[in-house]
Write a protein that binds this DNA or RNA. Sequence first.
DNA 1: GTCTATATACAGATAGAC
DNA 2: GTCTATCTGTATATAGAC
Lengths: 181, 181
Amino acid sequence: MSRPPLAYEKVLDAFEALLIDEGPRGATMDAAARAAGVSKGGLLYHFASKDALAAGIVERLRTLVDADVELMAASPEGPVAYFLRSSIMQNDPIDRAILATSRLAQDGSTSASEALRDVRNKWADALRPHTKDAASLDLVMLVSDGLYFNNALDGGSIPGPVPRGAALDALIALVEGAIRR
Amino acid sequence: MSRPPLAYEKVLDAFEALLIDEGPRGATMDAAARAAGVSKGGLLYHFASKDALAAGIVERLRTLVDADVELMAASPEGPVAYFLRSSIMQNDPIDRAILATSRLAQDGSTSASEALRDVRNKWADALRPHTKDAASLDLVMLVSDGLYFNNALDGGSIPGPVPRGAALDALIALVEGAIRR
DNA sequence: GTCTATATACAGATAGAC
DNA sequence: GTCTATCTGTATATAGAC
């Protein structure tokens, strides 16, 4: 895990931003190279194919989620509130990685779909001890999925305005009341 | 609203199926023509552009949802249970129309995104009188979004196994207990 | 109303110079 | 390690015959 060359991360950041802002259609290798300030050939030195580019995003997601599960388990307000609160888009690295990976999955990448399923399972495993039964865990996971879905569909603005601030607090209280062991 | 020519609906069905099964990338005009059993030129007589094809899907969705909101309001088990139950993919016309429209939105179609936002608002308006406050309505809408999200991401199998049967009944009971006015 | 043939554009990927 | 130039495939769309 020695430090990768600067251009590597720069290209990956650019590709991620394109996936989020323009969707799979706009996230071309050409556009990624341009946005990263390198030539197409330069990009292809680091990522030999578009699949390699996608694999870079997926790997980044897995790394970030592993760290987040640790943070969640140690959260003072409890894992469920932490999880739901962090399900609304804050544009931090993990949100961006999930969004970008979702776009890859939408575009037909099976490794992206697998990664999303895997990280969802990781979160579910960490939350299970804090819910009273299977339905309660389903409820928490589905509300989280719903929050992400509303962010993912069109950069955060479409279709639904996601609850924030006091509305989010009320939602979390409602869920916690329903599922407390 | 006179009956459209047969080929029109046939092409639209084929395009919808391709969006669902292959994703936006596979839903090309060429593939739609082939699947519908017409030539590319034949398709282009009915749909002059890919945007026209997308508009056909969106219009179909709006029509189906208008009818569904009526059905929901008159449902014997209550609108909330009806709504959540119908949020899991049953492969009926309305599910297929939503899935296909979601794929169009993912591909960058703003009219598809608008349609999804509009129909979500229509459902929310119909459900609001049956929830005790804004957080309760958020809860119902987000669980529904979550159910759809899990269906939409990869044809139903990825990422999460959606609760069905008894698990779905338990989930609905949990939600109804939390939100009852 | 449906077809064939073709124009245009762009994406992914290769070759090889510097 | 980064570049330019180029090949190949395929998608959207047009033109015009039948």
